[in-house]
Amino acid sequence: MAKPFLETDGPHHVAIIMDGNGRWATQRARPRLFGHHAGARRVREIVEACPENGVKYLTIFAFSTENWKRTQVEVAGLMSLFRRYIMKEMQAFVKENVRVRFIGDRPKLDAKLRGLMDEAEAMTAHCTGTNLTIALNYGGRDEVSRATQRLAQDVAAGRLRPEDVNEETLPRYLDTHVLPDPDLVIRTSGEARISNFLLWQSAYAEYEFIDTLWPDFSADEFAKLCAKYGLRDRRYGAVKA
């Protein structure tokens, strides 16, 4: 049964760079894909923890436009994992009232995976609880490039005047146009970089870089980071009177 959302001072939209699956597996003398499977299981726990922490939107970085550089074995294994994950989890997400969306450059993914993504979005379109967005074949620069191409097409067709192009116009063309900007971005595994994730949207997000490897990231640690966010003084460039 879906959990009610608590009203908190914490973040309403949390984005997570789920890093460390490979290292987690290596520490256990297992193949990297073993870590990716463990990481996929962790997603459910964090999704289920969102309502009690007041998090209405959760965006996770599953596969970047740069991840194609990995070995063919790992990429093929990840694509198979994504297909199985969608087929396995969708009924549970419907039951939990979780709406699922995907962002990223879809045409480069295989047809079966794209079909499952479309099906998952359609199956959960009526859900009104947690909004789970999965970034798959996603890169921030690629997203902005695709958005500006669509914007330029509208200008060329006369649907948009050049003088109306501004920082409020461009977001309408981004993959995330139906989502609020993230309040908090978390990166696991000890790396302190954003890796081309939600570059435009995270301009005023708070960041947490933590040492925990993604398969070990727990609902308790998630709750602590959300509570810590609520203690921050968010001024958006202004100065308190």
Rank of each mutant, 00 (worst) to 15 (best):
L160E: 08
E119K: 03
D9H: 07
R234T: 02
L179W: 00
A156H: 00
R70T: 08
W68K: 10
Q149G: 01
D233L: 01
T59E: 11
T59M: 01
L179D: 12
I16W: 13
D9I: 03
A49G: 08
R106Q: 14
T169E: 07
K224W: 00
I16V: 10
M87Q: 12
T130G: 09
C226V: 12
L109Y: 00
S145T: 15
A15M: 02
N21G: 12
F61W: 14
P4R: 01
C127G: 08
T176S: 11
Y236W: 13
Y229T: 11
F82K: 04
A192R: 13
I16D: 07
D9F: 02
A152T: 03
A205V: 11
F197S: 08
P107E: 04
Q201E: 15
V43W: 06
P107K: 06
N21S: 10
K108R: 15
E221Y: 00
D216N: 14
E96P: 00
A238L: 12
P180Y: 13
G230C: 07
L174Q: 11
R106S: 06
A219S: 14
V14W: 12
R70C: 10
D220P: 09
I186N: 13
R234N: 07
A76L: 00
L132T: 11
V43L: 15
A157E: 13
F209S: 02
L109F: 09
V43I: 15
M87N: 05
D142C: 00
G39F: 00
N67G: 07
L116D: 05
D118H: 05
M79Q: 01
T188D: 04
A76Y: 00
T128F: 00
V73W: 02
R23D: 10
G158W: 09
K112S: 05
H37K: 14
A125L: 02
P215D: 05
T26A: 15
C226R: 06
C50T: 01
G77T: 06
N196E: 13
A122L: 08
L132E: 03
N196W: 04
L132W: 09
V55R: 05
I60A: 12
L136W: 03
Y57F: 14
A152F: 03
Y204D: 05
A205Y: 03
I16T: 02
Y236K: 11
E167K: 04
P162S: 01
R32V: 14
S64V: 02
P31F: 11
S64T: 04
Y85W: 15
G104E: 04
L6I: 05
K69N: 14
R187L: 06
A125N: 06
G35C: 07
I46Y: 08
R235P: 08
P31K: 15
Q149V: 15
V75Q: 03
P162W: 04
E168R: 02
D118T: 13
E206I: 09
A2V: 13
A147D: 08
D183W: 03
A152M: 07
S64F: 00
R83M: 14
H177K: 12
P162L: 01
N166S: 12
A147E: 06
D110S: 05
R234A: 03
H13R: 13
C127S: 09
I194A: 04
A156N: 02
R159P: 01
D216W: 05
T65C: 02
T169M: 11
D110R: 05
D110Q: 08
